[in-house]
Nucleic acid binder design. Structure first.
Length: 283
DNA sequence: CTTATGACCTGATAGC
DNA sequence: TGCTATCAGGTCATAA
């Protein structure tokens, strides 16, 4: 997502921005830490979002990522932090074209060359946080997150799991422990590491944590190379679906045959999410 | 402090 | 056809 967004927007000046749904944006002095604080009732009047805060009149210099979150950094040093949630997406259209899916579009950036970039999110679990600069992004938003899953080291994962009594599956979904693993890749990584999802996080040996850490990085590397997993909605900023769903070993395959041992995959709710594993391959 | 639970939203699908 | 129930990639506030 980061790479496709970078290809789509870097260097193109933003002529104007239209905010169609105020609740998807949180500003810098909204209460910290919250994910959906702009939509929880705040005392006082609803404050307008200045267009500059949404990068109007600026040019996007780079697109960063930490875990599941994106950040658009402008040439003025301002930052837009975006979390796509489950159904959020970016749409691009060329000059004169209309947006491919105009429903549930919450923000539209008009680019200087006549093209447009839009933030669309039917389920509205996603959101946008305006930051005055990168220091603000790090202190208010990304400082809360654990190490990025794509590059995490075994010692850092071990530190996050030590003394954890909940299941390893639940721990992997906690973005303060490791940032960037969701329900799909938690199950896929645990299968690859041959570790049962219901094991308490703190019960993993140092060797098991090292194996799991390598599995997480390998799964994400392969999934990113395949363009991600498109279950239904996911498209990158250039409209392309991913292909990694074809290669899921366990996610979405409960009751079916394990691709390694042909045994039947188990399925249960662990850490409040549907979890699938192989009772024979995983220990 | 850590962990568990219900809530937030819409749309697709299954079953009656 | 139309109704209801269930489920989905995530994270929050609140409670225990």
């Amino acid at each position: 997502m980061r790479r496709s967004l970078e290809r789509a927007v870097v260097g193109r000046p933003i002529a104007d921005v239209r905010l169609l749904r105020r609740e998807v944006v949180a500003m810098q002095d909204d209460p910290p830490g919250g994910f959906s604080r702009a939509r929880t009732e705040q005392p006082g009047p609803i404050r307008r979002v200045p267009k500059q805060d949404l990068l109007a009149g600026q040019r996007i210099e780079r697109v960063c990522r930490h875990g599941k979150q994106l950040a658009l950094v402008s040439d003025a040093g301002r930052v837009l932090n975006v979390h796509l949630g489950m159904t959020g997406q970016f749409l691009c259209s060329g000059a004169g074209q209309r947006l491919a899916q105009p429903d549930h579009v919450h923000v539209v950036w008009r680019l200087g060359d006549g093209g447009r970039l839009a933030f669309r999110d039917p389920r509205r679990f996603g959101g946008i946080w305006t930051c005055r600069d990168e220091a603000d992004l790090l202190s208010r938003r990304w400082g809360i997150l654990g190490p990025d899953a794509a590059t995490i080291r075994a010692s850092d994962l071990a530190a996050g799991l030590r003394a954890s009594r909940r299941s390893i599956k639940a721990a992997l979904l906690d973005q303060r422990v490791i940032a960037g693993v969701g329900n799909i890749y938690a199950d896929e990584a645990l299968f690859r590491a041959r570790i049962l999802p219901q094991r308490p996080g703190g019960s993993l040996t140092g060797a098991e944590v090292a194996v799991l850490c390598r599995a997480i990085r390998a799964i994400l590397r392969d999934a990113i190379e395949a363009g991600g997993s498109t279950l239904r909605d996911y498209r990158d900023a250039e409209g392309r679906a991913g292909g990694y769903q074809e290669r899921h070993s366990v996610y979405g395959r409960g009751g079916q045959a394990c691709r390694v041992c042909s045994g039947m995959l188990g399925s249960a709710v662990i850490g409040q999410r549907t979890t699938v594993w192989c009772p024979a391959c995983q220990l």
